[in-house]
């Protein structure tokens, strides 16, 4: 996984409640056997009209948000199905960070595995960032994971919390499986004692 560096990017206002993973990437695109190429289908039903043309009312079709790297999202973002196609599609579109008050557990987890940073802030902080993002002339926000800081266009800063292990993995671009393999002996001995105690397992 590539390292997650500090970046400044366009933030799109996306204040919709309970955005589910079916909405992020509908099932007709799940038949892929690859991780890439889903960006053009992200939010398909909201993004395109019935004839396949772009829906001009959808925020990610409008300038400057068509080049967004950050979503300022509504509560409970990413609920529903466990499909990792959702973070793959967002990442492929160019989104690197999503800021909301809350995320669904599986989506939250899947995002970290793909170098996509979900940040949880308070409702007031999220609402302030939504106002920042609505300013089409200057919607750029800076995300500094190292210092756990969101820098607003007006110079203001919002601190955020993050699990230290997940932070380290993102900053260093670490591969989970490789890290787990360092515990190989512990896993083996666990397995052996379990097989003796509960042989049917």
């Amino acid at each position: 996984m590539e390292r997650f560096n500090t970046f400044k990017g366009i933030a799109a206002p996306f204040n919709i409640l309970n955005v589910d993973t079916d909405k992020i990437i509908p099932k007709q695109f799940l038949t892929t056997i690859k991780r890439t190429g889903l960006g053009k289908h992200v939010f398909d039903e909201m993004r395109y009209k019935k004839d396949g043309s772009e829906n001009p009312n959808f925020v990610l079709n409008q300038r400057p948000y068509d080049k967004s790297n950050i979503l300022i999202a509504g509560d409970n973002f990413g609920c529903g199905s466990s499909r990792e196609h959702a973070p793959w599609a967002l990442k492929d579109f160019g989104i690197k960070c999503i800021i909301s008050t809350s995320f669904a557990d599986i989506f939250y987890n899947n995002s970290f595995k793909n170098g996509l940073l979900p940040i949880m802030v308070t409702k007031d902080e999220r609402d302030a960032l939504l106002e920042d993002a609505k300013d089409k002339e200057n919607p750029e926000i800076e995300i500094d994971l190292e210092n756990q800081e969101i820098r607003r266009p007006n110079g203001g800063k919002i601190k955020f919390k993050i699990d230290p292990f997940r932070k380290k993995c993102l900053l260093e671009g670490l591969d989970d499986i490789g890290l787990t393999e360092l515990h190989e002996n512990k896993i083996k001995s666990f397995e052996e004692s379990r097989s003796t105690k509960h042989p049917w397992l």
Binding site: R35, S82, R83, E84, P87, I106, N109, N110, K113, N114, F165, D176, I177, L179, T180, E181, H183, I187, E191
Partner: peptide, 18 residues
């Protein structure tokens, strides 16, 4: 519980999860 594809790979490779 449900997991994503990266975790599917993790379980296949190690029979564990973080």
């Amino acid at each position: 519980f449900g997991i994503g594809t990266s975790e599917v790979e993790h379980v296949l490779a190690t029979q564990t999860l973080i």
